[in-house]
Design a protein around this nucleic acid. Structure first.
Length: 598
RNA sequence: GCACCCAUAGCUCAGCUGGAUAGAGUGUCGCCCUCCGAAGGCGAAGGUCGCAGGUUCGAAUCCUGCUGGGUGCACCA
């Protein structure tokens, strides 16, 4: 059993093949003209063109074959050769029953499941997460949930940034504040205290200070660079202190992520693959790919037609800079750690594919890393993907800043959303006496739904405008609207149970019921597209249109009201169960949980 | 300079293999709670799909050029 669209496509494909034509013409989608039909097939025009036939004559041959399918009540030929398919009420009833009984609520399964690592291109240690990190967190988390749901074997890794200059800046700054710490005594080899000498507030204060100072104070910046090189070379005190920085930061990160219900299978970071770096560098040397240049070790990854010199110009045409395995101080940047991380994943997980859910601005970086990994035989180029995302902009179209000109911390964003959600729940006061504990819990769920849906509904690759007002609005195409739809269904089912009514066989009759089932039927397609394109917004579009269809049904089709015939009541209760099941499943993929009431 | 991404309703955004009358939300204007939760529903108005060519029976979608915006271009990640 599958969705109706797939069943009908099967019939259409068979019909085209019976005429000796390609199966691809048999694609079926829900009708653009709901007043004319439920589904449509547009293949006749294309097929006729290719086979040099008359499209309407071809349609006349195809249509009767489709009409034989038991779900079909009528096939019309329209315009130049559109096939308009109307399905029977019984077929829709069956489709709804399928959603109600299917463990995946009609979501289908991946045709080609893979073992996949999702890399979140994680936050940097010591830098608090800002609004931009919302995207990688919720997009990456949704992809993990989605792929796993459809049958892929997925490992999510936060991949912390804990190996670069920011660590050197911290080391230098902490040494300046607390020079007597054991960690800075080079003759001392440990053991070091288990307690961190700095907490998160210290790090949040120290890092911006050190970062700012390094931009004007050259000697300071140089000391930080040297500290990084020493840390990377393995200086014991620095490494022990680094671990404290990481532990302190991770604890803070987990709080912010938990608010969004984002979790990871692995909390690895750049520093975890430190021991593999010599092997990776050697691998490139052995393959003759690494060359020395200005004291650094680089790998040329340009292809034919790139880095072409143009007469009379300084700039190269189609530039593709080499990657740097080792800088002139012997240190490593994120090219090398990303390559070492690939090696680590091959050794420990051996995935079919790695996805990097990272800002689109890193596109060139990943192109370089992917090429290098492929050249060295570490990982196949076309099994490495960078599903990048756009930046979060302010009203002016530039990367978002607070009114004060600073970056908005994710923790503050979370807090604002929570405050707004709590306020709105209080104003609406829809469900009478809800205790303070439950109210607090509902507030969190509503705030999370608002934030996650606001971000995920945007097509992944485009930039979007950050608008807190819109994010936390409870009207229209928002997370809270979806929760509201789910909560209303739950209220009906709860009331039905109290009154002793049970769901029965679903029998579709009313126009709103037909539309609602057609909405249910689109779930598998939405999930398939979302997986193929790594685009969570298809899931958002689906759950929203499902919620809309339910709201229209709710307004037009009474379920428990007096005067509703028992078999209609039972059918509509069954339909409610099917809708709730799929709605909660879809919301679950988006990391959104509906409360019992709100 | 070179490369990548983007341009759709006043605003914020969808639009799967090229298909019929380009869709939502918001805002504006109507209507709908003696009846399952009005954070809702129904309706109206609102578009030269940046511009100009091309391919096609058919283009928001594919190709070329242009304009406008964003981003990136080896020792920070």
């Amino acid at each position: 059993m599958t969705d109706l669209a797939t069943q009908l496509a099967g019939a259409c494909i068979a019909a085209f093949e019976a005429e000796g034509l390609d199966a691809r013409w048999g694609a079926v989608k829900q009708s653009d003209r709901p007043e004319l039909a439920d589904f449509q097939c547009n293949g006749c025009m294309g097929a006729a063109k290719q086979a040099k036939m008359n499209p309407r004559e071809l349609a006349a041959k195809i249509a009767p074959r489709i009409a034989e399918h038991e779900a079909v009540s009528r096939v019309d030929i329209a315009g130049p050769g559109f096939l308009n398919i109307v399905v029977t009420d019984a077929a829709l009833s069956g489709a709804a029953e399928f959603v109600r009984s299917d463990t995946k609520a009609g979501g289908g399964a991946a045709p080609n499941p893979e073992k996949i690592v999702v890399d979140f291109g994680g936050p940097n240690v010591a830098k608090p997460m800002h609004v931009g990190h919302l995207r990688s967190a919720v997009i990456g988390d949704t992809l993990v949930r989605l792929l796993r749901f459809l049958g892929d074997d997925v490992t999510g890794d936060v991949h912390l940034g804990d190996w670069g200059l920011q660590m050197g800046l911290l080391l230098v700054a902490v040494e300046e504040e607390q020079p007597d710490l054991l960690y800075f005594d080079q003759s001392y080899q440990g053991p070091f205290p288990a307690e961190s000498p700095v907490n998160m507030e210290d790090l949040s204060r120290i890092y911006p200070m050190a970062s700012g100072r390094s931009k004007t104070d050259e000697a300071y910046a140089k000391r930080a660079q040297e500290a990084v090189a020493e840390m990377q070379a393995g200086r014991a005190g620095y490494r022990a202190l680094l671990q404290h920085f990481i532990d302190v930061s991770v604890a803070a990160l987990k709080t912010d992520y938990a608010f969004l219900d984002v979790s990871f299978d692995l909390w690895k970071g750049e520093s975890d693959v430190d021991h593999l770096i010599p092997d990776v560098v050697q691998l490139f040397k052995d393959k003759g790919l690494a060359v020395e240049s200005d004291g650094a070790v680089i790998v040329d990854i340009a292809r034919q037609g790139e880095n072409v010199a143009v007469e009379g110009k300084d700039q190269l045409k189609n530039p593709m800079p080499p990657i740097m395995l080792l800088n002139s101080r012997g240190g490593t940047g994120y090219h090398t750690t990303d390559l070492a991380t690939i090696k680590d994943r091959v050794d420990t997980i051996n995935p079919d594919r790695i996805l990097y859910v990272v800002d689109a601005r890193q596109a060139m970086h990943f192109e370089q890393v992917f090429r290098a990994a492929d050249k060295a035989g570490l990982f196949a180029y076309d099994h490495l993907e960078h599903p990048g995302f756009g930046t979060v902009n302010g009203q002016d179209g530039k990367p978002f800043k607070t009114r004060e000109g600073g970056t908005l911390r994710l923790a503050d964003l979370n807090a604002m959303a929570l405050e707004e959600a709590t306020k709105k729940i209080g104003e609406a006061n829809l469900s009478g006496d809800i205790g303070p504990d439950e109210k607090a819990e509902i507030g969190k769920l509503v705030a999370r739904a608002a934030l996650r849906f606001a971000d995920l509904q945007n097509q992944r690759t485009t930039n979007y405008v950050f608008d807190l007002e819109r994010f936390t609005s409870f009207e229209g195409k928002t997370g809270p609207y979806l929760l509201y739809a789910a909560v209303r269904i739950k209220a009906i089912l709860r009331r039905a149970a109290e009154q002793g009514f049970e769901a029965g066989t679903i029998a579709i009759a009313a126009a709103e019921e037909r539309k609602l089932v057609l909405a249910l039927d689109g779930f598998a397609l939405a999930l398939r597209l979302a997986r193929e394109k790594r685009m969570p917004h298809y899931v958002c579009e689906h759950v929203f249109s499902l919620a809309q269809a339910f709201s229209a049904f709710y307004a037009a089709c009474p379920v428990l009201k007096d005067g509703v015939e028992p078999h209609v009541k039972a059918s509509r209760l069954g339909l409610c169960e099917a809708v709730l099941k799929q709605l909660e499943t879809g919301l679950g993929l988006l990391g959104i949980t509906a409360p019992e009431r709100m």
